[in-house]
Design a protein around this nucleic acid. Sequence first.
DNA 1: TGTACATCAGTGAACGCGCGTTCACTGATGTAC
DNA 2: TGTACATCAGTGAACGCGCGTTCACTGATGTAC
Lengths: 220, 220
Amino acid sequence: MTGSTKTPRERYRQQVREEVKEKAWQQIAGSGASALSLNAIAKQMGMSGPALYRYFANRDELITELIRDAYRSLADAFLAVAAVPGPALTELARVLRRWALADPHRYFLVYGTPVPGYHAPQDITGIASEMMSVLLDACAAAAPEPAPGADARAFEEHLADHRDWAEGHPDATPAALRLAMTFWSRLHGTLSLELAGHFTGMGLDPALLFEAEVDTLTAR
Amino acid sequence: MTGSTKTPRERYRQQVREEVKEKAWQQIAGSGASALSLNAIAKQMGMSGPALYRYFANRDELITELIRDAYRSLADAFLAVAAVPGPALTELARVLRRWALADPHRYFLVYGTPVPGYHAPQDITGIASEMMSVLLDACAAAAPEPAPGADARAFEEHLADHRDWAEGHPDATPAALRLAMTFWSRLHGTLSLELAGHFTGMGLDPALLFEAEVDTLTAR
DNA sequence: TGTACATCAGTGAACGCGCGTTCACTGATGTAC
DNA sequence: TGTACATCAGTGAACGCGCGTTCACTGATGTAC
């Protein structure tokens, strides 16, 4: 916090940028990310459309910023869990679910239908690997046994040879690598079905499915 | 096939409708479902925009039709599996993955980010429960054991009391109900992450993760 | 087989709309002497 | 403390665009006698 003395103008700029993003999220909540309109945001803020170009180069830059913030908020929540000692895997699962339910549109911006032609800038994939790193630590600490099934074992062997994504974790066992991927994949399975509304009308509680899945991941 | 003698005009109408949908899919593949434009489709077919209103009441009706066709194609693939005797669960998994990979945009139209404000007409949810019914039969045939973990067991008990979605299957055991939900949720977890590109750049083969998950579901 | 009429596919003009983005500008805020 | 200048937020007009949708119409195809 030393070199970050902000002039009033810089402070103001940042304030307006935040307000723009806030209105952008509201708009996404109402009509989806693809309908996001700079002009509509400006009008909602009582400004003229072109004024926003003082704060964002164009529409794409705004969307990228929203995606970056979304990743960042989840990564920060994960890092906060990692900062506390003790068994972390269950806690990571809860944090993930809480984050997803807190703002489904934010969830879908990150894990939903990809925007055709959009490629996330590299710093965003960096944030994603921060999360993976936290998850891998928790999986390694859980010291999982090798999987029983033949195909599951084959996957572990595959992971032992393909660990690019686990760069900072050369000591993670194949079983730990598999646990991380399974954790990620299973929990996103229940969450994406739940948030997309595929359980509504079925008369069951998605929270219990989620807990059950966490159970199978952390058991033993 | 008795009363369905088609006049040439009816045949032609249906042909054009099919071509419109075909171009619609191409357009979705290129720029996403929300960018789907009747005018652009018409132009691509060498027709004027208003001409399409002979075939679809409006844009929404076209999209609904696409979604219905998507559901129908998956349900038909499931029913084809059910028509063959023998253990079906692994085969259903393979069919699901093949269907998803065959056209990722079709997958996302059904299981991706929901369109805000859009509600599927009732006949579509009917198709969805056709699939669930096939899945439940396969799960019942697998005769799964009750789950080991406490939360997993709690979920089974919950399902025993909340079986609205399993209406036609009053004899399905709680373990079978749980297997169906787990199957559905886990496989969609790997598929949605894979198709959204979250595994690209990680250097692992999503097919092996999928097989491993199928393994854990059908084992024992 | 031929004529009269009804049906229906497709056109082109038009409406109103909102979009992203540029540009030249006004007026307020901050900076330098 | 006061003046001269530079910076920068925001405006309003304008550009070109494509959208969904309606409407009155032409011309081809099918139907009835």
